[in-house]
Design a protein around this nucleic acid. Structure first.
Lengths: 169, 169
DNA sequence: AGGTATTGTTTAAAACTTGAACCACTGTGT
DNA sequence: ACACAGTGGTTCAAGTTTTAAACAATACCT
């Protein structure tokens, strides 16, 4: 089958998206790194915990929410635990399991840095969009997420290992 | 000043965006890693070169297009040069400068892997969007990029160093 | 000529990711 | 009960990437 290339309009949209998402992630990471001392993913871990009942979540559940491997999460939580923002506890109902708990210190960090973070997001995105565009953005992103997760229902990175480049150098 | 939190609609849009962009970048990276043996950024370097006149671009120009530091680009191009996809040449008009040139091998790699990449992008995004949504996506992303680049006209990551976390562990 | 700005690289340290191996436990079937 | 496959989560070693800072070479300006 012959390749269905992107139309000019799709091309433009795609380029814009790549540029914007790259710029955005850099901006957010920089700001978060400066004010909270951690990259976006780590901040998201704290944010998710802060909203969970009792400020605690099972490791696997957290990994699924954030769409990352358990291995990666273990590394991240260990770091956050060293920072004092999170604490690990054994799971009462399943002795294999662990729950990550947001500490008071972590909550304080979150409350201290959230305004700056929101400000970044606002300045980069929402201050310049109409209410209609906000709705459009949500729908488009929802559609993308659905498309990706539908394909291989919920398959996570670690389920489909990919070939490493042959180390020839 | 009191924080202007996100409205419920903005909140939903933001969450959707974070999820979608994370999933999307993972998907694209995995596919590109498997088929081209390189992550998205590196592929973009080849793509940009392939469209440049004479398949060549000055290092700094390339860094600006991709919005990355020169240091980061140096590393990436060195890797691509080892892979044989890119070659460095001195710049005739400025003896300080270098240009990255896409080799025939690099072009072949690009042509071989582009269909798969487009297929990924299409499956994840454009196959599920209406033409109107494609236009909306472009406008929204354009607006985001403008907002970020306008702020500190073109300031790049290396211009504004950020504090590293105090290594307390 | 002299001073400053650019270009791009190098360096060393640090952060992060990966896949595989692994242990402890759970749940199921017999 | 008992074997035994499956889960939850961590550890491990290796590799990739990123960072900031320092540097050499050249260009530009006065």
């Amino acid at each position: 089958m012959t390749t269905r290339w992107l139309s000019p309009a799709e091309q433009r949209a795609w380029r814009s998206y790549v540029s914007a998402s790259s710029l955005l992630e850099d901006t957010i990471d920089r700001r978060l790194q400066a004010e909270a001392g951690m990259p976006h993913l780590y901040y998201s871990i704290l944010a998710m915990l802060s909203e969970a009942p009792d400020r605690r979540l099972r490791m696997t559940e957290l990994a699924e929410i954030l769409k990352i491997t358990r291995s990666r999460l273990t590394y991240a939580v260990t770091r956050l635990e060293n920072d004092g923002a999170v604490q690990r506890e054994g799971c009462p109902t399943d002795k294999r399991g662990h729950v990550a708990v947001l500490t008071d210190e972590g909550m304080a960090l979150l409350e201290r840095t959230a305004p700056g973070h929101v400000e970044t997001v606002r300045a980069a995105i929402f201050d310049h969009l109409t209410p209609e565009q906000v709705g459009q953005l949500e729908e488009i992103c929802e559609s993308i997420a659905r498309a990706i997760q539908g394909e291989n229902s919920g398959a996570c990175r670690e389920d489909l290992p990919w070939r490493r480049r042959s180390s020839t150098s």
